[in-house]
């Protein structure tokens, strides 16, 4: 049984790490700010989410009690991440940052 829990923990950890890395890769690779904004949303949702799930499974198993502490961090990030993304997008539109020419539609005047 221990080995199953270890495998589950390991898989969650790897999922978390890989998605955080892909998110940051997007932050570096993508050509304009509005596109780069999409990278970190992933790091928060699946990146941290995966790590938290791993910790949850592991500590619940080693302590033989449901250990839901960490859920609070994910909950808080799920509430806060969209707000910061929204505020940053507004700031970028206010500063009239350049966006790729082939972007359809227009940002709003702030």
């Amino acid at each position: 049984m221990d080995i199953v829990i270890e495998y589950i923990t390991a898989i969650f950890l790897l999922i978390g790490g890989v998605f955080a890395l892909i998110g940051s890769l997007g932050l570096v690779r993508l050509p304009d700010f509005f596109l780069r904004l999409h990278g970190p949303t992933k790091a928060t949702t699946l990146g941290v989410g995966g790590t938290i799930m791993a910790s949850l499974v592991y500590f619940s198993w080693t302590e033989h009690a449901l250990h839901l502490h960490e859920i609070l961090i994910t909950l808080f990030l799920f509430i806060s991440a969209p707000v910061s993304a929204h505020m940053l997008a507004k700031a970028a539109m206010h500063r009239e940052l350049k966006y790729r020419e082939d972007t359809r539609g227009k940002p709003w005047k702030q």
Partner: peptide, 28 residues
């Protein structure tokens, strides 16, 4: 641009949360 830097900083703190949780996991 400045928003780019703030976005990078924002991502760094989110990832550091994961790093801290990882450290807690490795030290039990």
């Amino acid at each position: 641009s400045l928003p780019d830097r703030v976005l990078a900083l924002d991502t760094m703190y989110v990832n550091s949360i994961a790093l801290i949780v990882l450290y807690g996991l490795s030290s039990g």
